Simulated scan of single mutants.
Amino acid sequence: MAGDHDILCIGSVLWDVIGRAPSHMRQGADVPGRITRLPGGVAMNIAMALARFGLRPALLSAVGRDPEGDDLIRNCMALGVGTAHLYRSEDLPTDRYMAIEGANGLIAAIADAHSLEAAGARILRPLTDGPLGDSTHPYAGCIALDGNLTLALLNEIATHPAFARADLRVAPASPGKAERLLPFLTHGRAVLYVNLEEASILCQQSFDSAAQAAQGLVARGAMRALVTDGGRPAADAGPQGVITLPCRQVLVTRVTGAGDTFMAAHIAAELAGQPPAAALAHALDAAATYVSGEIPS
């Protein structure tokens, strides 16, 4: 591990603009609620959760040199998330994500992550051209990676020698971007964190359970796969076989960021030396606590 961090989080770092209503919503609904702006993005959500679990995460991403970007950097630092290795662009604006949530879950969302995609491989320079590593001295720590990167960049990470020794943990940003994780099935160099829908997209077949989906991903080439299925049992498939555990049933008050919390809790548990079953149980409990609203956003 580097002196200033325990884990790197690569991917989207942006402002989340979330509208939440306490009532059920349908298309075209106009209801009272609350609108908040918070640091977000998959990589940022994972980093914030890792910090809550006592780790020191550092970000690799693109953040604009605009007022929104400066404000975002200040918020990251206040939350215990390292920003020293971020790519700060002079001409790309800070990205944003906007979502509407009702009592019946996520209604709609739009991710404006064009700056991250435009920055491309420039966000990886600390790993590919120092100071964190390069092709001859690969980074040997843990990396949490999200699927908001382009397919070309994810494929580069899956094959680049600078990542050959890294403990890669990868999650898609959404079901619509699940197919971007295909390079990690082809090269088998990462632990995948997906939900049942995303697993079905990656394997191009339907599954009845998380256990079936996790096994299906390993059969397709994944080194290891963790699959969640909402409030139904989750599974972890890999060299240890298949572990399936139930979820704690709670009243759902929010959903955005739940998968990121699950992934962060699982990584933190394993970095602390917990065995697979205990790490999965810890992650499920953390996710249940998060969606119930028992901890702050």
Rank of each mutant, 00 (worst) to 15 (best):
M1D: 02
G11C: 13
S12R: 07
I18L: 15
H24V: 10
Q27W: 05
P32V: 09
G33F: 14
R37C: 10
L38M: 14
G40Y: 08
V42K: 13
V42G: 11
I46E: 01
L55V: 04
L59E: 06
L60R: 02
G64T: 10
G64W: 07
R65I: 07
P67N: 02
G80V: 10
H85L: 12
L86P: 06
L86A: 01
Y97P: 01
M98G: 02
E101W: 12
A111F: 08
A111L: 07
A113Q: 08
H114G: 15
S115A: 09
L116S: 04
G130D: 00
L132H: 06
L132C: 10
G133E: 03
H137P: 02
I143T: 01
A144M: 11
A144E: 00
L151P: 02
L153G: 05
A158V: 11
R165I: 01
A166T: 09
A173S: 15
P175S: 10
A178P: 09
P183I: 08
L185V: 07
T186W: 09
H187L: 11
H187I: 07
G188S: 08
R189N: 15
A190T: 07
V191F: 05
V194D: 00
N195D: 11
L196G: 01
S200I: 03
L202S: 06
Q205N: 00
Q212C: 05
V218C: 14
R220N: 06
A225C: 05
V227E: 03
T228S: 11
D229L: 10
D229E: 11
R232Y: 08
R232G: 00
P233E: 03
A234G: 11
D236P: 09
P246V: 10
R248W: 02
V250Q: 01
L251D: 14
V255M: 12
V255I: 13
D260Q: 11
A264V: 06
A265V: 07
P276H: 03
A277N: 00
A278L: 14
L280V: 06
A281I: 04
V291L: 10
E294F: 09
P296E: 15
